[in-house]
Design a protein around this nucleic acid. Structure first.
Lengths: 234, 234
DNA sequence: GACAATCAGATTGTCGACAATCTAACAAGA
DNA sequence: TCTTGTTAGATTGTCGACAATCTGATTGTC
């Protein structure tokens, strides 16, 4: 019999689609931090009942990008400078660990996939598609996690990534400028192909610090004009 | 005005109570790995409708202790040896990080709380209350995370802890023996009070490895008699 | 005018019923 | 005997309606 691995059938519940829709809206910044999600309005817009919508929202609450207050509502999480610092400092630690685990497991397929994802980022950059650039850059970054062969680590990183993507999207949205055309991932990719693990770990840490400064400045801006929004939870 | 910090009002939704009930049942091993959760039956037992039950189950799925297959059902996660290895190795990394962050923030309140939790563990140990012993030991362990002042790290650890608690409970349940009466946390507490951070980090790592061997043996046992259970997802 | 009590509107939480899907047993045909 | 088609039962997914709760405005009282 011919050996063929089929990928799992897509989830076809409304709930799953709603989760995807909402997550996308939040991570791209279409839904702003602190904003309230009105169940009735959203369910009418999506043409679904509140039941699957509410279940979807429960998932996103646990995923950490929504927050819920009983009988008051469900809100997009607020972004504080501290949150960004916290997420980034943890990300550094996880990165070092992931590189350590993935390092001995690198093979041709790893390198090929690395190049493929790198190309995807470059394509998005050339197309000036900011949202997609953020998304693909994180996917490139995620390869070491997928290769690390530690399901708990991967899961943890994916949760963290949700927030990072949101932060970056907000940042990009705020400054409203075209994306830098230069390739910031060249060195990272090269180091992952090389033989010096410590160097790769070091670069991952420093490279992160690069974008970080910009992001922090943005977050501090947010802090200042906080608590002026229309509908935020108290 | 007298300064007084009130603790938040308890969540009074059915959903929240159901989450607590189910989580407890899973983490204490009353619900076994792989077991299917029949919505109708559980909702009747709890005297609630399926709506809040289903929302609660969604939360636990995202929390990582349930898994769901559309139109097939929701199941308690299976425990494999690999899962335990993965969780533990990540836990080591996080522990080192948490100690590093918490170290300069230690104060009298920290030491007091450390002692208090240590006492709680000893009380549970004396009472031969296995479940509570596991629970309190993890709470003792969690203090450094609470003190690290990194919300993302804390959240990550809490998710990880859910599984660790489940693994330990299953292990204890399986061997069906009284709890060791000796105090295995004495050194850990002493080191956290000391001045040698590296030593504390080293001990955290080694102490973990101690229980780990036992737990792994149990997990390997599980592996062998896997796929013989009655109602497991495929 | 300041403050407490009351009330209407809006929103979230929960319920019971129906629709969609899966599973397993059975029947029919090669 | 093996495979395929059918069907009944059970279970999950979704819906619309009702109950509980919150918010903000209004009223009444001092």
């Amino acid at each position: 019999m011919a050996k063929l691995d089929f990928s799992p059938i897509a989830d076809t519940t409304r709930r799953a689609e709603i989760v995807a829709l909402l997550r996308r809206a939040i991570l791209t910044g279409q839904l702003e931090p602190g904003q309230k999600l009105n169940e009735l309005r959203i369910s009418e817009q999506m043409r679904v009942s509140r039941a699957p919508l509410r279940e979807a929202m429960r998932e996103l609450v646990q995923e950490g990008i929504l927050t819920s207050i009983p009988y008051a509502g469900t809100f997009v999480i607020d972004v504080t400078a501290k949150d960004i610092i916290d997420a980034y400092s943890l990300n550094k630690v996880l990165d070092e660990f992931a590189i350590e685990l993935a390092w001995p497991l690198r093979d041709q397929r790893f390198f090929d996939e690395l190049d493929r994802r790198h190309e995807t980022v470059k394509a998005a950059t050339r197309a000036l598609d900011t949202t997609r650039q953020i998304e693909t850059a994180l996917q490139l970054h995620g390869l070491i996690y997928e290769w690390a062969d530690n399901s708990v680590l991967l899961e943890t990183w994916q949760r963290l990534t949700s927030r990072l993507q949101m932060y970056f999207a907000l940042h990009q949205r705020a400054r409203n400028e075209p994306v830098p055309a230069e390739d910031v991932h060249e060195t990272y990719v090269a180091l992952l192909k090389g033989s010096d693990m410590r160097a790769a770990q070091r670069h991952a840490r420093e490279h992160i610090d690069l974008d970080f400064e910009e992001l922090l400045a943005y977050a501090r801006g947010l802090e200042k004009r906080a608590s002026t929004g229309a509908d935020r939870p108290r």
